[in-house]
Design a protein around this nucleic acid. Structure first.
Length: 920
RNA sequence: GCGCGAUUAGCUCAGUGGUAGAGCACUUGCUUCACACGCAAGGGGUCGCUGGUUCGAUACCAGCAUCGCGCACCA
């Protein structure tokens, strides 16, 4: 790039070029360093996007925040690894491919398992690639050479390893239990994948005849169709109403089956009739009760939630049809007592919204309690820290109440469970590699379990498997535990919690003897080093401009690529960063992005201005960069004039603030700080102030112009580095241009991040500059009030009691005249209070000498309003100063402030009143 | 049912125990030789309601209201 810049910033071409450059140059690739490498390490894992489709604004938000952190740390000199990858997303991806098949009029059963899985791989090649292309567009500075996919062979091997170890430790078991079953997906799902919704339902009261009496016992149920599988009726032992029925049986209506009346805690005398039907095969509580009382388990539905042959005459009906028919038939037989309105929490499949059916089936489970114990300890001891902090409690509450985790899925896409059944003796063999013969009998006819593992089982391992586990790799040694995890709260339990459980378990198994040399390590040390990440930053959700959650069904999904195409990646990133106050959801509003596109353009034009001058007065000038890695601060800057001292000080102060903001994940503060500095100080004031110096063409003045140019370049270069993590593209472009295409490093991303240097802070300059700014703004203000024409220069009078202020103004007379449209500055000996068109500042009064040409009526209204405001404040101040309690208890500086303020206000009131008088 | 969060300018959001802030939108004036994606000036808010703590509350506490979100096997 040369110094020839287009008149306005056009992000499209530039961004594409740099995105490709970064990848070609492998700028963000790191390999595990030698033991002598002194650099601190910063590592983090990209939460792998699902390969189910394209990235949405939420992904972009997440990646923007990660990229800011990563680029910042890298520039701060950390050995920085950001590990990218994608997730196979078992159930989701399978669903997409099934849908695709359906459009061809096919079902996966027709295609067959092997061919189906091949189809999914095809899908993955297509969409996985699309996602990675999008990430490149966002400028994510990941290490592309380490990209992983959760179904890669090495990761699959690690999954088998974990499964076998947990099984051997007795922490994985198989059994027939009630699980959440999605009849549409045809698989079990975990508790977390069921979303409960309160819906208006019915409570049916049904009479069951008691055998050998004329009595009935009335039970209540929300799901009458399950009565076909009833194997008992339960009453509470203490419930007097049913004491006489203990030991009796009832005849189950419709099925004509005798079932016992049992006493069990399951029946709550307070609820309904106090008697409850027991259906062990269709309800988790009933299942438990069934075990307590040794009841048969009669499953009346198939995997599609249609009634099966156990449902007698109802066989073949869908569960909801069956409900209607059962109710009709009961009513016909006079056994239906009542139908009452009842709100029921209905469980729906998180993936497809189908109503989940509790189903009895054989599944694999992880016994999580021992894992949870360590995962709790790690967080309670602060080895994993949450930001915002309240998520710590959310995490702990969940962990304290955790249930066993159903990990088997009746899907075809995913990691196949490494368990085989001997067809001869039914022995279950769990092994790392496919066994060839049975371990218990001579047989060799083995059949692998058809199920696959929950996707989160494998993603829960990623912090260590993506670094090469189970092999003892150098990567693991260096990069584990990772430094940080940035993710959304929606997967706090699914993923974050499980990574902590599995990391703490496998990286430092408490049950295994420590290796030699570990003796010095306490259990706490081991735990501290076993966590998958030391910090978790939970980001907010991106919503649309109306605060609606974005969803495909609502059609309000914002495609980040579209926004990027309209405003540029940098502007989009800046928007997300500026809105990323922790804990608050983002209502994404493109008008903000337009504003930040303008910001990019502003920087661009400031840069153009700089080059214009540079090429004229100091061609060949480059930023000072002695070493290969520029110093962290502003380099080669000469504090010649007040504005130089001022801007240098401001830069350092802002650099300090930005670093502090980033430390605290205050992306919003960091972005705002840079924005205000660049636009509000560098462009609005500094550049304006040095224009006269730059303009000089001849002789000694030309040298002054060159020095001013050098300062501007130095400062600009540092400011570009300060901005780079948030706006990587425009900064890369400008940075290369600053060095005329021959920068000392391949990228500004490898340069040093500005660090505030105490010796460059200059409080006196900041204060002096503030006085000048106040003077200039006051005059502009008065000019506007007096309706002075833009081009007309006006004389001003200044009164000040401080000689320092007078000197300051005299020394900067030219700046005042130019920036405030002043013809001549004179100093008054006496107060200007009695004149009109005067501004009072703390350290001076300024009067614009000009005959008003203003609308008296409008001015009167304005002044009256101002007077009201002043009087209100006076009343307030006097009330406080007249209060002894206030005087004795308030801090001295507050009291002092008000005491100073009182005469100021009085003068102001007098001033305003006399102005009003004049206008009469 | 339990818990969490939100409520501040027209909109989207920051913020603080001591005179209310930003971006966008709005009004007015400017083809000022980097930028109209700009420059300059300005209008606009009893900081959800009610109590309490305090010399002083938008901020801290309690209650209420509205909205949103988690967690929860009561048939």
């Amino acid at each position: 790039m040369s110094h020839e810049l287009s008149k306005s910033y056009e992000p499209g071409a530039i961004e594409k070029r740099w995105a490709e450059y970064w990848i070609e140059q492998k700028l963000f690739h790191v390999s595990a360093p030698t033991k002598e490498d002194p650099r601190p390490v910063f590592s983090l894992l990209l939460p792998p996007p699902n390969v189910t489709g394209f990235l949405h604004m939420g992904h972009m938000f997440e990646q923007t925040q990660m990229d800011i952190m990563v680029r910042w740390r890298r520039m701060r000199g950390f050995l920085t690894l950001w590990l990218p990858g994608t997730d196979h997303a078992g159930i989701g991806t399978q669903m997409m491919v099934e849908r695709q098949l359906q459009s061809e009029g096919k079902k996966r059963e027709q295609v067959g398992r092997e061919a189906f899985v091949e189809r999914v791989w095809e899908w993955r090649r297509h969409y996985g690639g699309a996602i990675l292309d999008q990430m490149k567009r966002l400028g994510a500075s990941v290490d592309w050479d380490r990209e992983y996919f959760t179904m890669d062979e090495n990761l699959s091997r690690a999954v088998r390893e974990v499964f076998v170890r947990l099984y051997d430790e007795g922490l994985i078991y198989r059994g027939r239990y009630i699980v959440n079953w999605c009849p549409r997906c045809g698989t079990a799902v975990s508790d977390l994948e069921v979303k409960h919704e309160d819906v208006a339902g019915k409570l049916y009261e049904i009479r069951y005849p008691v055998v050998g009496t004329n009595e009935f016992i009335t039970v209540a149920t929300t799901r009458p169709e399950t009565m076909l599988g009833d194997t008992a009726v339960a009453v509470n032992e203490k419930d007097e109403r049913y004491r006489h029925l203990h030991g009796r049986k009832v005849r189950l209506p419709l099925m004509n089956r005798e079932i016992p009346i049992i006493t069990d805690e399951l029946a709550n005398p307070e609820f309904g009739t106090g008697a409850v039907k027991v259906t062990p095969a269709h309800d988790p509580n009933d299942f438990e009760a069934g075990l307590r009382h040794n009841l048969p388990q009669i499953d009346v539905m198939d995997e599609h939630a249609r009634m099966n042959q156990n449902a007698g005459p109802y066989a073949g009906l869908d569960r909801f049809e069956a409900r209607t028919r059962v109710v009709q038939d009961l009513e016909a037989q006079g056994l239906l007592v009542a139908i009452k309105d009842h709100t029921i929490p209905l469980g729906k499949c998180d993936r497809c919204r189908t109503i989940v059916e509790p189903r009895l089936s054989a599944q694999w489970f992880v016994k999580v309690e021992p894992l949870a114990k360590r995962a709790i300890e790690a967080v309670e001891k602060g080895y994993v820290r949450f930001t915002p902090e309240n998520y710590k409690q959310v995490y702990l509450n969940w962990m304290y109440n955790i249930h066993d985790w159903c990990i088997s899925r009746q899907l075809w896409w995913g990691h196949r469970i490494p368990a085989w059944r001997c067809l001869d003796c039914n022995t279950i063999i769990v092994a790392r590699e496919t066994p060839t013969k049975c371990t218990q009998c001579p047989g060799s006819r083995l059949e692998q379990d058809p199920d696959v593992l929950d996707t989160w089982f494998s993603s829960g391992l990623l912090p260590f498997t993506a670094l090469g586990w189970p092999d003892a790799t150098r990567d693991l040694e260096v990069f584990y535990p990772t430094s940080l995890l940035i993710t959304g709260f929606d997967i706090l339990f699914f993923w974050v919690a499980r990574m902590i459980m599995l990391g703490c378990w496998f990286i430092a198994p408490p049950h295994r003897p420590q290796r030699a040399g570990d003796d010095a390590k306490s259990a706490d040390d081991v735990l501290r080093e076993s966590v998958p990440f030391r910090e978790v930053y939970i980001h907010a959700l991106v919503r649309d401009a109306d605060r609606q959650k974005m969803s495909k069904t609502k059609g309000n999904v914002l495609d980040p690529i579209e926004v990027i195409e309209q405003y540029g990646t940098d502007a989009t990133r800046f928007t997300l960063a500026a809105m990323a106050a922790p804990g608050t959801d983002i209502a994404f509003n493109a008008s903000r992005t337009a504003g930040y596109r303008n910001f990019a353009n502003k920087i661009w034009n400031a840069c153009r201005f700089m080059f214009m001058n540079l090429d004229r007065v100091a061609p060949g000038l480059r930023p000072d960069s002695a070493g290969s890695r520029p110093e962290a601060g502003v380099r080669g800057f000469e504090a010649i004039a007040l504005e130089d001292r001022w801007i240098l000080s401001r830069f350092n102060r802002v650099a300090q603030e930005v670093s502090e903001a980033l430390e605290a994940y205050r992306f919003d503060d960091a972005a705002r700080g840079i924005y205000d500095f660049f636009w509000g100080e560098l462009c609005d004031w500094y550049i304006e102030l040095i224009k006269p110096r730059l303009a000089s063409e001849e002789g000694a003045e030309k040298e002054a112009a060159q020095r001013a140019c050098k300062n501007l370049v130095s400062l600009f270069e540092a400011a570009i580095r300060l901005l780079h993590p948030v706006m990587p593209f425009i900064t890369e472009e400008i940075w290369h241009a600053l060095y005329d295409g021959r920068p000392p490093l391949k990228s500004v991303a490898l340069a040093a991040y500005p660090v505030a240097q105490a010796k460059q802070l200059d409080l006196a300059a900041e204060i002096e500059m503030a006085v000048l700014q106040e003077l200039i703004v006051s005059v502009r203000n008065l000019r506007a009030e007096l309706a002075v024409e833009q081009k007309q220069r006006v004389p001003i009078q200044i009164f000040t009691e401080e000689t320092a202020v007078r000197t300051l103004i005299e020394q900067n007379r030219g700046a005042v005249e130019r920036l405030a449209g002043v013809a001549k500055v004179t100093f008054a000996k006496d107060s200007l209070a009695k004149l009109s068109s005067v501004r009072h500042a703390a350290r001076f009064d300024v009067h614009v000498v000009y005959e008003k040409k203003i609308d008296a009526a409008v001015e009167r209204v304005r002044l009256k309003k101002e007077l009201e405001r002043i009087e209100k404040e006076i009343a307030n101040v006097q009330r406080q100063l007249g209060n002894d309690q206030f005087l004795s208890k308030a801090p001295a500086q507050v009291v002092e402030g008000l005491r100073k303020r009182e005469p100021e206000l009085a003068a102001l009131r007098e001033k305003t009143q006399s102005k009003l008088q004049e206008l009469r």
